[in-house]
Each structure stands twice: as C-alpha cells, then as structure tokens.
C-alpha cells in the first residue's frame, strides 16, 4: 500500500509542470501595480520573475526573443493604459512591436499565448494578480516551452547573436 502511494506521488511530481514566466513591467504603472498587489496582500502564483524597465517602449524585440530562447514558458509585457503613459506614447510603440512579435513568435514555433501584453495601472493590484493567475493557468494547459528543454539542460551556450 505504502509503495503504491509513493508511486502515485512520484508520478504526480513528474507531471506537475510549473511554468517559468518573465514579466517586463514599466516603472510607472505596472511595476507600481504589482507593488500594490503586494501592499494589498493579493496572492498569486509564484511563477513570475519581474524585470523593471522605465517604459514598455524600451523593450527591444530581440530581448523578448532571447527570453524565449533562454527557456521562458511565457513572457508578460505590462505597461500603462492607453493615454496614461508616463512618456506620452511609449506604450503605443510597445504595442506596435508586440503585434509584430506575435507573428514572429508564431513563426519560431512558439504558441502565441506565451506572449501577452496587458495594460495594468498603478491602482490595479488585483488585476495584475489576475493576469498572472490567468497566464499561469493558460501556460499550464499548453505545456512547457519547446525552448525550455535543451540538450544542455536548459542552459543556452553563450554565442554572439546578430541583431535582427
């Protein structure tokens, strides 16, 4: 009996997939929104690692593609709502790049659901948590990224990449 139980646990462990998400959040709205989720003690799954940037407009498509290359199961880009950008229109420029990136990512063989852009304001702590929850659920359904499991065990060798 004991043996059988352990075996089940082991199988469960093996099949339990915890997605690795990277979130690029703008300093003024979404990073502050994520802070507010904390201040309000809103709970969300611990799958996301947040990188602060001043503006989503700063996000280089190459960086997003690299993030997938390093094995991210999902990438969240979050910035200010339309018309709220601290730098007037950086979010719109991020949106343009995002539309193109979506196409590009598909061509790379990555499920487009792995890349998500959301507008999260500094007062939307609960919404930030909700976005992370949804994304974790979505990606759990899709499964691990094809780039996540490489022959080197997830480590990508250093190699100079020509810029796209």
């Amino acid at each position: 009996m004991v043996e059988a139980k352990e075996m089940i646990n082991e199988t469960e462990c093996e099949t339990k997939f915890e997605p690795k998400l990277i979130g690029f959040l703008c300093n003024w709205c979404s990073y502050a929104g994520a802070d507010l989720a904390g201040t309000s003690r809103v709970q969300y799954p611990p799958n996301i690692r947040i990188v602060r940037v001043m503006c989503t407009g700063r996000l280089d498509p190459q960086l997003i593609l690299n993030t997938f290359r390093y094995g991210a199961d999902g990438v969240l880009i979050a910035g200010c709502h339309e018309g709220d950008c601290h730098y007037i229109g950086g979010n719109y420029r991020a949106y343009r790049k995002y539309i193109l990136l979506k196409e590009f990512v598909k061509k790379m063989g990555i499920n487009e659901k792995r890349l998500r852009l959301e507008w999260v304001s500094a007062s939307e702590g609960e919404r930030f948590a909700k976005v992370v929850r949804e994304m974790v659920d979505d990606i759990k359904e899709i499964g691990p990224s094809p780039f996540g499991v490489t022959t080197t065990g997830g480590v990508v060798e250093d190699e100079p990449e020509p810029k796209i």
Binding site: K20, I22, V51, D60, N66, T67, G71, A72, G154, V156
Partner: peptide
C-alpha cells in the same frame, strides 16, 4: 537599462 543588463537578468532568472 542597457540591453546587456536586461539580458543578463533574464538569463539569470531562467538558467
């Protein structure tokens, strides 16, 4: 917020 700095953060997070 240089490319290399952000890239290093992402790489460290994932690998």
């Amino acid at each position: 917020f240089k490319d290399a700095q952000l890239d290093a953060m992402v790489k460290a997070a994932l690998t």
